[in-house]
Design a protein around this nucleic acid. Sequence first.
DNA 1: TGGACGATCCCCT
DNA 2: GGGGATCGTCCAT
Length: 206
Amino acid sequence: MQKLPRTFYLRPTLQVARDLLGKHFIRIHRGITLIGKIVEVEAYGRDDPASHSYRGKTKRNEVMFGEGGHLYVYFTYGMHFCANVVIGPEGKGEAVLIRAVEPIEGVEVMRENRCIGATGKRGNGEGNLTNGPAKFCQAFAIGRRENGADLLGDEIFIVEGDAIPARMIGRSSRIGIRNGVVKQWRFFVKGSKWVSKTKRPPSRPD
DNA sequence: TGGACGATCCCCT
DNA sequence: GGGGATCGTCCAT
C-alpha cells in the first residue's frame, strides 16, 4: 500500500491528528513487519504549555522543529519512550503523539518485545499489548535510534488503513499533563478496546 | 553542579 | 487507587 505523502503531514495539526485515526502504522524491524491501526492520538501545538516545544528549540526536541513526516521519539520517567509524528513545515514545532494502536500484524513479535507470555499473563491479556504510548513503542521496538526517522523511508511509515466515520471519533482533554488541560486535543476511536486504559478525562458530550 | 520533574507503566493494597 | 522505578533534560544556583 502507498505511503502517506509528505503533504499529508504539512496540514493543520488538529486535522492531521484526527485523520491519523484508522491509518496503519508500519514498522519493518529485522525483516519482520509489524502493523498497528492507530486508534488514539494527542495533538501538541507550538503555543501550548503542555508541549515540549513550548519553551523553544533544544537539543532534546529539535526533531519536533523539523519538517513534518518525521518521527520524534523521547525518553521519559527514566524508562519509557514515546513516539510522535512531526507535523507542519520545518520550524513549526508541532506533533501528534501516538497513544495507542490495534495490533494488525506481527502480534507474536510485539508480545516478545513487550515480554508478555503467550498466555498474556502480564496485565489484562491482549488489550494490554499496545494501549499506551510507551507500550506501543516497546511493542514496535521504537527507541532512541528511531528518533528523527523519516516516515517516507522504508523502516517506519504510515499507510491508508480503515476510514473512521466522524461519529466514531471521540474527543477529550489530553492525559498525564498539568498545563493545557483545557484543550480538547485527544482523539480516539469510540468503543475500541485498544484505547488506553488509564483514567480518562471527561469526553465531549457530542 | 545539583535538584526537581516528567506526554508512563506495573504491582500492590 | 496509590506509589515506586529510574534517568535525561533543563534551569537555577
